[in-house]
């Protein structure tokens, strides 16, 4: 729902690193987005195409690596993926669980020319 704000941040970061690398053009961005980060890739792409126009990043492709949300049971150690709604540990039914992956939301790398 806040993809415009997010995409603006993304553009700023990519431009900063593109300029620092003395790039003529940024061609690709590699993003890692966890399932719990509540970011819709299609919306980011939509805003990206609009706001990157006329910048070093115009026409750059966005690549999303989605990270599923993962939990671990504190009682039996069983790791499991969040499948839709939150559930207790499927192995021992304990509610003592921790989310260990799925919050990721970062720009991993960019590819540049020049």
């Amino acid at each position: 729902m806040h993809e415009l704000a997010v995409t603006e941040n993304l553009l700023k970061t990519a431009l900063r690193h593109g300029e620092a690398a003395a790039a003529r053009r940024v061609t690709d961005l590699h993003l890692v987005i966890g399932e719990l980060a509540t970011i819709v890739g299609d919306s980011v792409q939509f805003y990206w195409d609009i706001i990157s126009k006329g910048t070093l990043c115009e026409g750059a492709s966005l690549h999303f690596e989605r990270v599923p949300a993962e939990l671990r049971c504190l009682d039996c150690g069983h790791p499991y993926k969040l499948d839709g709604a939150l559930t207790e540990c499927p192995a021992c039914a304990s509610a003592r669980v921790r989310i260990v992956a799925g919050d990721e939301f970062r720009l991993e790398a960019i590819e540049v020319e020049g």
Partner: peptide, 16 residues
């Protein structure tokens, strides 16, 4: 020559 620049930066780092 295309090249890759590794970044690994939180996208909302500026906000943080």
């Amino acid at each position: 020559m295309p090249r890759t620049v590794r970044i690994v930066e939180k996208i909302l780092d500026a906000n943080d």
